[in-house]
Design a binder for these strands. Sequence first.
DNA 1: GGAGATCTTCGTGAAATGTCGAAGTGCCAT
DNA 2: ATGGCACTTCGACATTTCACGAAGATCTCC
Lengths: 236, 236
Amino acid sequence: MKSGVRHQLAEKMAGEITLSDSPGQALKKWRQSFNIPQGLLAERLEVSPSVISDYESGRRKSPGTAIVGKIVDTILSIDEDNGGQFINKFAKILYSEFDEDVIYDIHEYASPVGLSDFAGVIDATTICGPMDQAIYGYTVINSLNAILQLSSSEFNRIYGWSTERALIFTEVSTGKSPMVAIRVTPFKPRCVVLQGISPEQVHPLIPGLAERDRISVLCTQMDVETIISSLRGKSW
Amino acid sequence: MKSGVRHQLAEKMAGEITLSDSPGQALKKWRQSFNIPQGLLAERLEVSPSVISDYESGRRKSPGTAIVGKIVDTILSIDEDNGGQFINKFAKILYSEFDEDVIYDIHEYASPVGLSDFAGVIDATTICGPMDQAIYGYTVINSLNAILQLSSSEFNRIYGWSTERALIFTEVSTGKSPMVAIRVTPFKPRCVVLQGISPEQVHPLIPGLAERDRISVLCTQMDVETIISSLRGKSW
DNA sequence: GGAGATCTTCGTGAAATGTCGAAGTGCCAT
DNA sequence: ATGGCACTTCGACATTTCACGAAGATCTCC
């Protein structure tokens, strides 16, 4: 899940810079910890090197979100072009290895995404529940490993930052176990996507289970890699 | 470690807002997910309600880090005054319970902090190594639980975002085990603080172990809660 | 259907950002 | 000590932010 790491790292950097008493110093810290000279950063941003220096020295006390975002993105891009050595170093911190087996991808939207748009992107068919809802994120979960490896408290991690999300369970056989797991768990997602089966294969108990927790259920046969890259690539 | 959660949550919020294509929408999402009306937020920020609306509606395309920080902080403060229900909800996501037993506190500085200043705050004595260094963060670790509970790969999590940090091991007897653990591990901190013992009690092998990895070693008898609150309270 | 609370839109002026380029500092290597 | 590289400082000016308050739009709950 490389792209996931990049995004989380970007968020961490941006957050730290934004909250810092001196955003300039924080900016500098990150540039330096990626071993990037001001000049190169300036070149990639297509601005003059003095601009970078002005920010880092604190002449602009409160830089706008736009440049902070651009600078963070550029720092990461430069590292990616060099093979991503620093991103990979930071990646170890972000994802504990346990996550990689269980959570294939996890993402939060900054603004609501319509459920029917979402369904369209992953080519999903509605099994039950309303489609005029909005979600704030999604999680792609390896169904088997989630049930084998997660303790009940760890199970909550699949919800990321909002329960207003879609949980995509991969390679399900009938979809019954994921729905049961959700039934017995305190948090409820807005939507569950069963990946790898056709509408006819969906277990007949599912609409009943889903209705109790007001969850919309979809299914898709798009393969997991395609789902992840389609969702990642989309800007809503 | 309540304060730790607040900080991490603030960082997450600020990062998401800063990186968003429309910071206004992201701001709105967070305000709403804390169930705070614009009017109340405006009042606490001592600005007129239209200011909030202007931000959220996107009239300001790239708000500065200063206001973003202020808004995030105010949202969190309002929730704290209401008993912190939403902060606690998000806290579940930030800290897996496993962390709480092992990592008492973990913090990153946006700009370098001198090691001797740091030592002063926690009333630490130098055992060996140079003090004219700088660190970018610290981690307070329960020594016993760390060694009992952490697998070798999980051990890396104590480094947070930078290895240029101080690792504070609590309630050590001689300090040997923590130093051995660091010796056999790929990442090296700048500094190790042994909490709970006097300089005379420090195991004689320690200077030798520390020198190999160029680590400065300190010790302090300040109690853990005091250390955490002193470090948290300090703005450098 | 109207009172009230919540939110949006907009004109405005002071202040700050965003960018440039020229000139200056400091530190290695040759 | 003469470059060269990395970085800093600064004046200038166009563009935005920031904050206000008045007026309009929505929604909800009698």
